[in-house]
C-alpha cells in the first residue's frame, strides 16, 4: 500500500493494481497496468479479442498460478467470479451447486442454505433447487451461476463475459437482473464484455484495454435507468467504439498504408466526436486521480 500515495478521498478502493505485468513466453499481455476501483463501483472492461481482459481478471481473482509476471494486487477478501460458461458441476443439483464451499455443518449450514435459496429466488430460479444443471437452459444456468456468486455475499464480483453466450432477449433480462442485484447488494463489479452497449448500459466507468494498457478510462455519468435511445448514451458508445476502432487503425498504419478495414461508420463517429476524443486522455487522468 505504501506504493500508493494518498490523495484518495471518499471510500477506500476495493481493487488496486500496481504496475501489474503478465507475460506468456516472450509476449507481454499486461504491461504495467495501474488501476484503482473505488468500493462499490461498477466497472466495464472492454477491448478486442486477445487484448488481455481475461488475463487481467484471472490475475485479480488469483487463479493464474502458472502465468509469469509481477506487480501488486489488492483485492477484497470475498471475491466471486462469474465465468462465461455457467460452470455448474453437472453431478450436483442446482442448490448444491450454489452451496458449494459454503458451511456444510452445524447451524451455519442452515444459514447458508437459507442464503442459497434466497439467492436462487432472487435470480428467478425458485422451485428449481433440485434440478440437475443439464436440465437448465443456458440463461437459467447462467442465473444459477450468478446466484452461486451472490450466496457468498461478495465484496467484489469479477465477471468474464457472463452473458456472451446468451441470446439478445435473455441478455437484456440478465442486464436488468445484474443491475438490480448490484443496486441491492452494492458489491464492486468488474465486468468484462465485448459489447460496448452492455458497458454503457451498466457501468459507472468503462476501461478499454489495448496493447497491455488502458487506452481509455471513461467515467459514464448517465442517470439510471439508462436507455439506448438517450443521445448521451450514443455519445459514450461512440467514444468507446472510437477507442477500440481508431487504435486498430493506428496499429495497422505503419505496414499497411491502404484503406484500413475499420468500418467507415466508426470513422465518422470519431470525427463527430473529435472533441471528446481529445479529452479522452484527460478524462482518463482525471479519473485515475479522482
Amino acid at each position: 500500500m505504501a506504493a500508493h500515495p494518498g490523495g484518495l478521498s471518499g471510500p477506500a478502493p476495493a481493487v488496486v493494481l500496481d504496475r501489474l505485468t503478465r507475460r506468456f513466453g516472450t509476449r507481454t499481455v499486461l504491461d504495467g497496468v495501474d488501476l484503482r476501483i473505488p468500493d462499490g463501483q461498477f466497472v466495464a472492461l472492454v477491448g478486442r479479442s486477445g487484448s488481455g481482459k481475461s488475463t487481467l481478471l484471472r490475475a485479480i481473482a488469483g487463479i493464474d498460478h502458472e502465468v509469469e509476471g509481477d506487480g501488486g494486487i489488492l483485492a477484497p477478501q470475498r471475491v466471486s467470479v462469474v465465468f462465461q460458461d455457467s460452470r455448474l458441476l453437472p453431478w450436483r443439483r442446482v442448490l448444491d451447486n450454489v452451496l458449494l464451499g459454503l458451511a456444510r455443518r452445524g447451524p451455519q449450514r442452515a444459514a447458508a442454505e437459507q442464503r442459497g435459496r434466497a439467492a436462487l429466488a432472487e435470480v428467478g430460479l425458485a422451485g428449481r433447487e433440485d434440478a440437475w444443471p443439464s436440465e437448465l437452459s443456458g440463461g437459467e444456468a447462467q442465473r444459477a451461476a450468478l446466484a452461486r456468486s451472490l450466496a457468498r455475499e461478495p465484496e467484489l464480483i469479477l465477471a468474464d463475459e457472463p452473458f456472451g453466450a446468451l441470446d439478445a432477449l435473455t441478455r437484456i433480462k440478465m442486464h436488468t437482473l445484474l443491475r438490480e442485484l448490484w443496486h441491492r447488494h452494492g458489491p464492486t463489479v468488474l465486468l468484462v464484455t465485448h459489447d460496448v452497449d452492455e458497458a454503457v448500459l451498466l457501468a459507472d466507468r468503462a476501461l478499454v484495454l489495448e496493447e497491455g494498457r488502458f487506452c481509455l478510462d471513461l467515467p459514464i455519468d448517465l442517470p439510471r435507468p439508462r436507455s439506448v435511445k438517450d443521445p448521451r448514451f450514443a455519445e459514450y458508445r461512440e467514444r468507446l467504439l472510437a477507442a477500440l476502432g481508431v487504435r486498430e487503425d493506428e496499429a495497422d498504419a505503419p505496414d499497411t498504408p491502404q484503406t484500413p478495414d475499420t468500418p467507415v461508420e466508426v470513422e465518422s463517429e470519431a470525427e463527430s466526436q473529435s472533441e471528446p476524443e481529445t479529452t479522452a486522455a484527460a478524462a482518463q487522468l482525471a479519473e485515475v486521480a479522482a
Binding site: 481473482a61 488469483g62 487463479i63 471475491v79 466471486s80 467470479v81 465465468f83 460458461d85 460452470r87 458441476l89 453431478w91 450436483r92 458449494l100 464451499g101 452461486r148 457468498r152
Partner: peptide, 23 residues
C-alpha cells in the same frame, strides 16, 4: 475449468477432492 472454479470458491483440498474430483 472445475479446478479454477473450486479455487475461486475457496474450497479446501479435502472439499475439492470430495465434491469435484471424486464425483
Amino acid at each position: 475449468r472445475y479446478v479454477e472454479l473450486a479455487e475461486t470458491l475457496g474450497l479446501s483440498r479435502g472439499e475439492f477432492l470430495r465434491h469435484v474430483v471424486v464425483p
